[in-house]
Design a protein around this nucleic acid. Structure first.
Lengths: 348, 348
DNA sequence: CTGAAAGCGCTTACAG
DNA sequence: CTGAAAGCGCTTACAG
């Protein structure tokens, strides 16, 4: 009976208190709480009334312990300040709330060590399932969860593990859309600007770029490819170098809107005009891109659908509506949005 | 002994299993887990080894139940897709992780009903404390928590409740910076564009705008103020109306970068140039604003500091390092960042 | 239709 | 230095 140091904290009222006031047993209170059917209507009423009067809210921690289910899921993103992640998180959080489930969020900053820690913290906290928005193509921690058949859905990026559940968009065909648009405009010297190959998204966008060139009989040129692990540092140097080439590019296809916008900034600082001197296509259709001041031509993924699908499948897995035997593997199509950063190539 | 429907889920290993293998009692295992000092070094070693071997991770749910502490906090934002909220969330999530505490996130979409539900869900889930990034000036649910002295820190926006803990920036002086900059450039006909008055941020920015005009002997004109509850809908109409006035404004001070950028778009569509025809100042310094294509002059809050301070204070409250007797009320200063959307007024 | 009892997986006095 | 026991706040068979 130590005095509570936080002061007049209304000392927790429990199912036991309700039972007392209502003149029933704990079990009965619990049964009304859980919608148990065979209860006399009058006792249900009475209990409900006392609960209301005392403002009782059952303790989810205790409930979780016995039910072996917490009503929480984990959400792991690469960078919540990146619009793609925050927009999909918003969808997931809103939808989860509708189902009464809470989300524990983690931001890995694309760091494997943090990913691992987040995963194990979430498991220790007994989340019912996990959504991962950014994995590398190889990730042993994810493999372990897949093997255990722990409810897990990767979205946006997937691992190479063939048994993993994922909801991604068709990055290869997205690239094809972008590159063919450029080709139709008469461009043949097209640079590819991208993030690291260790992510399936960039890997596939890169493959799509190469295949599309090949399909149209355009030679692939390694010196036209920028695919740094650290996309922020070297872009400026790359652009300068590639523009110094005798046979320089007339167009840039960036695997990311952020990269596309940086490129726009760089070339305008160098005195060039977009799209007059260079056509630029991005990928992602983040919010800024549609801003009239930017007007970036880009490949748009259906973020909302991706996030909703991922959550829906996860919940299905959790409550057993969906069998965990067959991996869930969903590929969404993307579309090209033509705005004002692309135009006909000057020299054909 | 029902067969587990999820299959070869490695049936949960407990402190009891560890105790068995290590030849000690549960209590002892628990003691090494909790760093209890008086233990023979050899038994500690032994237990640690078994834990390692079996890959045992203690169940946080069970631990939370008995410790009456969950190691989680709640984070409530108005709109995670808004850069201000996602950037501050990132800071909070990262810092919380360093302390080993998990964050349950909620996005209210500025809806009071969702706010209330989020709050009670978090309490039921027994979070150790709550951070709220967007409250209205009046909020009875918050008042109740304040009265109970539940660990709670408001940041960015605060309620009118004088006992509430908060970390905000000085919105009034931020406005003064913006308006005086415009006045120095020779502007006297300055519009104020803002979100709803029901938020302390906008309320104070509005007050700052009015006071600064007054201080400089410039008459306040109600027709120059746009302060809709729904900022997205009516801006276009307002701009058109105000520009049709005989004595029309030469500058716009927007209480939000988003509003400022929308205004830039609107007036450019109408054929005007910024800053030649109109000067525009924003508030927030979101990422796009520094983009060379936008180059918005704006008031910058120290988001990172605000978020860090809020979390730090919350943790202090939770572990009792900070007394809950005196409200924690911190006001951070902001600065003006002059870029290229403001210039000298044409007609003086 | 209702209640007594056991138990979820831990921790914490209390004894020894 | 270590263990037996009680308990955190619920739910769930099992009896009746």
């Amino acid at each position: 009976m130590a005095s509570n140091q936080t002061g007049p904290q209304p000392s927790k009222i429990t199912v036991h208190d309700i039972a007392g006031k209502a003149g029933v047993s704990q079990s009965t209170v619990s049964k009304v709480l859980n919608g148990y059917p065979n209860l006399r209507e009058s006792t249900r009423k009475k209990v409900l009334q006392v609960i209301e009067e005392m403002g009782f809210v059952p303790d989810q921690i205790a409930r979780s312990l016995v039910k072996n289910k917490t009503g929480t899921i984990g959400l792991i993103v690469g960078d919540i300040a990146n619009p793609f992640f925050s927009e999909t998180s918003k969808t997931i959080i809103a939808k989860a709330r509708q189902y009464g489930i809470d989300v524990i969020i983690s931001d890995t900053d694309y760091d494997n060590a943090i990913m691992q820690k987040s995963l194990s913290a979430m498991l220790a906290r007994r989340v019912d399932g996990i959504l991962v928005a950014s994995v590398e193509r190889e990730d042993p921690n994810i493999d372990r969860l897949v093997e255990r058949k722990f409810p897990l859905i990767l979205y946006n990026r997937k691992t190479d593990n063939e048994r993993a559940n994922y909801v991604v968009s068709n990055n290869s065909s997205g690239s094809r859309l972008a590159v063919e648009h450029l080709i139709e405009l008469g461009h043949t010297k097209i640079c590819f600007l991208s993030g690291s190959n260790k992510y399936s998204t960039f890997h596939q966008r890169y493959e799509g770029y190469k295949k599309t060139l090949e399909k149209h009989g355009i030679p692939f040129r390694p010196e036209f490819v920028y695919m740094q692990n650290n996309p922020e540092t070297g872009l400026c140097g790359f652009i300068h170098d590639v523009l110094r080439l005798e046979d320089r590019p007339t167009a840039f296809f960036a695997a990311t809107d952020q990269l596309a916008i940086q490129t726009m900034n760089l070339v305008s600082k160098m005195g060039y005009a977009v799209p007059e001197d260079f056509s630029i296509v991005g990928y992602d259709d983040i919010e800024i891109s549609s801003n009239p001041f930017v007007g970036l031509t880009t490949v748009s993924q259906n973020n909302r659908l991706m996030a909703e699908t991922a959550l829906e499948k996860l919940l299905g897995l959790i409550n057993g509506d969906i069998s965990a035997e067959q991996p869930i593997q969903i590929v969404l199509e993307s579309e090209l949005i033509v705005r004002k950063t692309t135009s006909r190539a000057r020299e054909t």
